[in-house]
Design a protein around this nucleic acid. Structure first.
Lengths: 223, 223
DNA sequence: GTAAAAAGCGAATATTATTCGGAATTGGTC
DNA sequence: GACCAATTCCGAATAATATTCGCTTTTTAC
């Protein structure tokens, strides 16, 4: 069964994969764009190490090799700087998934790929993952709509895929997709959180297979 | 099968239910103990409303009706004040569970009760729940051993109950208890987080039944 | 009733995010 | 290659706020 571009889940994914409009205006000079990238990378390291609240702008500046006040030429505040970090990379994740998902025939395989890619992405970018999963994702403080949307997209994509899978008869129809999505997202993020905080499971990649298998077994329609 | 007091899960639960030694020395005067309680309640409200990082000690003082500098007669820092909040109530939760769990015959019923009580406790104390689940639980910043232990106890209790249930043949033996525990804790906390952040599900109590049923069905040994 | 201890407070102090004014650098144009 | 305008950069204020200090008031114990 070929996908229609109008499938809700594909539409939602497509929107989520768009890199959002950057908060400020895009700087004109080449040097500046590079600096902005370096600054974001430096901030990611410092924030991941010290936590956003305790991290000092002086340390970020030192890590980036620029003056403290120069940071404010690129980002209006410490918060805005911190929030920019997850937005960009989440959009990358969604875009990468969008590229790889097309050849897979079943919603089951697609959902499995999405969960696996999410874990791999965190494992490959632990600093970023610390910020996203330990500080930003659950934070009350996020009024910033862009961050909120990036994070919410994750849930929307999963719910839409679950709906489509149910419609196709691949997933149990008796489970509320929101309930299933809560179990899927909660389990995956909790696994990531324990990995980030305690280093367990030691081999995250090896633990992901059984976890995803168990979760998919739960939502799969009985044969 | 009567419980032995040496069952590991009971031992762990018993320890978790002990109110930890309070960080500072217990104040001698009656008035002071009362003030300390009021201060903690006021801080819970303010921190839940504004987030720990953004909350001002001046607001906490106003809410408690005392001078800012007096706060420091009770707690050494804003952080210590914030961290005291989850410790006490988690110990209460564990103690309440310990009281109610004895009459239940099966580990299945006991685990179900534990999960349900956890959700109810959060619903009945939303300010506290905001602090615990949105700010403190996932936080990197917690070096404070006492907070860490309170939170870790939650996982230890679940893993121990899963082990005991497997030993008794109530739960599937082919699932790693850590994997099962991750799914249980992740699903429950994720449900609480979405409730706290988005108010969904609207009726948390009504959503808890199906959620717990689904989770228990996943780990129950096949008949 | 009195002295010692505890609790309470307003006024400094210290830390740190943010702003400001101007100097240095860059990219385009002649 | 020289100039101009825009941009980038920085050191020195400024502002917000957690924490400390010295002193006063209240409570407890005898």
């Amino acid at each position: 069964m070929p996908d229609s571009i109008t499938d809700p889940w594909l539409e939602i994914l497509g929107q989520a994969a768009q890199p959002h409009q950057d908060g400020g205006s895009d700087p004109k000079q080449q040097r500046s764009r590079q600096r902005k990238r370096e600054l974001l990378a430096a901030a990611t390291r410092v924030f991941a190490r010290d936590g956003i609240a305790k991290a000092k702008m002086a340390d970020v500046a030192k890590e980036a090799g620029i003056a403290v006040s120069s940071i404010y030429d690129y980002y209006p505040s410490k918060e805005a700087l911190a929030y920019e970090i997850p937005i960009q990379r989440l959009a990358h994740l969604y875009a990468a998934f969008l590229e790889q998902v097309a050849p897979l025939p079943t919603m089951r395989d697609r959902l499995r790929l999405f969960l696996t890619m999410t874990v791999d992405h965190a494992r490959d970018n632990p600093d970023w993952a610390r910020l996203l999963y330990l500080e930003i994702w659950p934070s009350v403080l996020i009024e910033e709509a862009r961050v909120r949307r990036s994070v919410d997209d994750f849930g929307r994509i999963i719910v839409a895929m679950l709906r489509e899978g149910s419609r196709r008869g691949e997933f149990r129809a008796d489970l509320d997709p929101h309930l299933s999505a809560t179990i899927l997202m909660g389990s995956i993020t909790h696994m990531l959180i324990t990995w980030l905080l305690y280093g367990r499971p030691q081999d995250l990649a090896a633990a992901t297979g059984p976890m995803v298998d168990t979760l998919m077994g739960l939502i799969a329609s009985p044969r």
